[in-house]
Design a protein around this nucleic acid. Structure first.
Lengths: 224, 224
DNA sequence: TGTACATCAGTGAACGCGCGTTCACTGATGTAC
DNA sequence: TGTACATCAGTGAACGCGCGTTCACTGATGTAC
């Protein structure tokens, strides 16, 4: 006999106390965090309803609307939080770089790690359908983790470590590569992937040196 | 004044005649095609309901269940159709190849083109959450467009055009690159992308030659 | 120190909606005799 | 050639469900006097 005294949507362990006057804002953060946790736990954005969020916080559904105009606004707030987290991790990784070229690698690895550790959040940020205007030209300028990567590529070019070219374009190419491997592994978890380190290493090496066979003097064996 | 005589769910232009005895199977194909068209038109998988599919075919919802056990089975059938279409296009592109290395490029381009021309189908095939067992190890062996790419890579290696290595691993890397650019452009249509040819060219060149700066004799300027 | 009152965090019950699916049925088509 | 009947493609109406959201409300908290 299991003693599960689940007597409704508000188990004792998560029972909240009503906030003090003026402290209403703290529910906002609790809602955002509960939403993020539910997304990570259930692994399914559609399964996360206003009701389930309210339940997780220990509050009734209408309370959500005291802090968010509608569900979209809540999802936006959660995305915002995660974009900041991604940038935070990228900066952390970049801090240990030996040189700009190394920094590019470390940022790429941090990106893949973030995605594989937070697959459902990654889905929402980079694989979803929401926010028709989520990355308008103006917003891209404020998209920290992207701009930081462009800067790193520019510095690597200036240092003569990367072939000269348009830093934006090179960044897009590198982004495509790391996003490609991350999103495939998130979307197709049952594919017989080699160990993740091997796959990431392959993609990184491919971006860096290419796949083309080279002669003894380093020249490509084919012309395209 | 527009003469729109939309008099219900079955406009005259699409009115069906009941199939002959034994010809019931033809509705099955009509349902699959209507579903595919709706997905492409609305650009939103969730907006495509059993009711809307039945409407598009000119039939009532229960008729769907004469041919598919449930909605999942229908979606599977549509996916199947599109996987075959992707392989067909890849084969078509590969037929014009000068050599195995060229074939890799052509297949990659065909892949990106397929995704950008059929974004909603691409979403379902490669960015969705369905089919927990959709690419089990056994199924990958039957996944034509993937296996054909592995073969092309192996031939390019045998011909000395691609650095020796594991053809599967190289294919995964290349797949990550083309999927990366395709899925990003599908998921973030408002990002200020350069012209698609430029982006695809950048990714292809990056996969081929890498981004690292090389000395006059072709040797990498950095060691990693 | 006591009390009336304004504030505001949060509730309870219900709304309309569209969904996937079911079930008993209809009626045209072909077949047996 | 005519008729009774089996077959089967497709229908009409309804089911229960969970969803996002609304609205009138409660009751604890702090404040003015």
């Amino acid at each position: 006999m299991v003693d599960d005294r689940s007597t409704g949507p508000t188990p004792a362990s998560t029972r909240r106390h009503r906030a003090r006057r003026g402290d209403g804002q703290q529910l906002r953060q609790q809602i955002i965090h509960a939403t993020a946790r539910l997304l990570a736990d259930t692994g399914d954005e559609e399964a996360v309803s206003i009701r389930s969020i309210a339940d997780a916080v220990g509050v009734t559904p209408p309370s959500i609307y005291l802090h968010f105009a509608d569900k979209t606004e809540l999802v936006f707030a959660v995305c915002d939080e995660h974009f900041r987290e991604l940038d935070r991790r990228s900066e952390e990784a970049a801090a240990g770089a030996r040189d700009p070229f190394d920094e590019i690698h470390l940022r790429g690895q941090a990106y893949v790690r973030f995605g594989l550790e937070n697959p459902e959040q990654y889905r929402i940020l980079f694989m979803g359908r929401h926010q028709p205007d989520d990355v308008s030209p103006e917003q891209v300028e404020q998209w920290a983790s992207y701009q930081h990567m462009v800067d790193a590529v520019r510095r690597a070019m200036d240092a003569g470590m990367v072939e000269p070219g348009d830093p934006q374009l090179v960044t897009i190419g590198l982004w495509a590569a790391v996003h490609g491997i991350t999103s495939l592994m998130v979307a197709k978890p049952t594919f017989p992937w080699p160990p993740v380190d091997v796959v990431v290493g392959q993609v990184m090496a491919m971006c860096t040196f290419g796949v083309v066979r080279r002669d003894i003097d380093g020249r490509p064996a084919v012309a395209v």
